[in-house]
C-alpha cells in the first residue's frame, strides 16, 4: 500500500514539476541578465512577496492567506481557484497565461512590471506549499 501511494505521488507530481520547472528556467535566464548578483530563486523571499502589503493590497488579499485556499476577486467577488499546484495542478502549466497574469497583477498591485527574480521567487514559494 505504502509503495502504491509512493508510486502515485511520484507519477502525479512529476508533470506538475516539469511544467513549473520549464517556466522557472526561463525566468532564471532573465533574472541573471537583470542582475549579476542573482544566485537562485527563494521560496522564503517568494512568501514575503506574496504576503507583503503594497499600498493597501497584497497578493494574498485576493488569492487568500493560504495559497491552498480559494481566493476572491476584490472588486467583483468572483471565486479564484487556489494558487498552490499541490491542490490545483493547472497552475504554472501555461507560460503565456502565467505571463499574462503577472503583467496584469503586477501593474495593478505594484504599479510596475515585476522582475524575473520576483516572478521566480513567487512560483518557487507556491510550488513549495504542500
Amino acid at each position: 500500500m505504502k509503495r502504491m501511494l509512493f508510486a502515485f505521488i511520484l507519477t502525479s507530481s512529476a508533470p506538475l514539476y516539469a511544467a513549473a520547472t520549464t517556466i522557472l528556467d526561463g525566468y532564471r535566464i532573465t533574472a541573471k541578465q537583470e542582475s549579476a548578483a542573482f544566485k537562485d530563486f527563494s521560496a522564503a523571499r517568494g512568501e514575503t512577496f506574496y504576503r507583503a502589503k503594497m499600498g493597501d493590497v497584497a497578493c494574498a488579499s485576493c488569492h487568500g492567506t493560504s495559497p491552498k485556499d480559494h481566493g476572491k476577486h476584490a472588486t467583483t467577488g468572483k471565486d479564484i481557484l487556489p494558487m498552490a499546484p499541490s491542490v490545483n495542478p493547472e497552475r504554472f502549466t501555461d507560460a503565456a497565461k502565467v505571463e499574462k497574469w503577472f503583467r496584469r497583477n503586477c501593474n495593478d498591485v505594484l504599479k510596475r512590471a515585476c522582475t524575473a527574480s520576483e516572478k521566480g521567487d513567487f512560483i518557487t514559494f507556491l510550488t513549495s506549499v504542500r
Binding site: 472588486t75 503565456a96 499574462k100 503583467r103 496584469r104 497583477n105 501593474n107 495593478d108
Partner: peptide, 12 residues
C-alpha cells in the same frame, strides 16, 4: 483593456 475600470485586463 489595460485600464479596465481600474484594473489591468490587457490581452495579447
Amino acid at each position: 483593456l489595460d485600464k479596465h475600470f481600474g484594473t489591468d485586463a490587457s490581452l495579447a
